[in-house]
Amino acid sequence: MSDWERSSTARVIPPARPRKLAKVPFVELADGRLQGVVSSGSDIGRVYVSSVAAGTYAFACSTNNNRPCGGAHGSFCKHIAALIGEAVLQYGTERVVRYLKIEVPEGEADGATLTTVMRGTRPPADTTKAAASVFSRFLRHLAYLEHPPVTTPLPEMQFFPPTRAVA
């Protein structure tokens, strides 16, 4: 067992390339989807929770108030396209392609190509319910920005049981 596996911290994988967080502040590959939060271009107080399911490419996009995105009618809206582009920057093209199970011609994969290769379909009803949990995780990540930088453990992050008996 390596040192990081015995510690109470997880390895942080650096982004494939630096990215700006203003447009897409939160992106993750989780729960069988590429999902995240995308800022509105017209209203500073509005964000969109967008997702694309792995394999089926079923997509969902709605505001933080659960109102459907006006641009997501039968194809990806600009929020989903931005999410895909930022995922490529964060995780790298190969990892996004592998996770979403996209078949792309060799050497032709970038954010724009991935968007055109996937044929969007209207999401099943349960896909849109995931928006609440994605937005909740995003807010939880924002809360950690409020903590002062310290090297001591945060009590709410100590949910793992000890791996060896304490005497």
Rank of each mutant, 00 (worst) to 15 (best):
M1G: 15
D3I: 11
D3A: 15
R6V: 06
I13A: 08
P15T: 03
P18D: 14
R19H: 08
L21N: 10
V24Q: 02
V24R: 05
V24L: 06
E28Y: 02
A30K: 14
G32H: 05
V37T: 15
V38L: 05
G41Q: 09
S42W: 06
D43Y: 10
D43Q: 13
R46C: 04
S51V: 10
G55C: 03
Y57V: 10
A58F: 00
F59A: 12
C61T: 01
T63A: 00
N66L: 12
P68V: 09
G71Y: 02
F76N: 08
F76P: 07
H79S: 00
H79G: 01
L83T: 08
L83R: 05
E86W: 04
L89P: 07
Q90C: 11
Y91Q: 11
R95F: 03
V96K: 09
V97E: 04
Y99S: 04
E106D: 11
E108D: 13
A109H: 02
A112N: 12
L114M: 10
T115G: 09
R119F: 03
G120I: 05
R122E: 10
A125M: 07
T127A: 04
T127Y: 02
K129T: 02
A130V: 00
A131F: 02
S133A: 10
F138I: 03
F138H: 10
A143N: 12
P148K: 14
V150A: 14
T152P: 10
P153F: 03
M157W: 03
Q158N: 07
F159D: 13
F159K: 15
F160A: 15
P162I: 00
A167W: 01
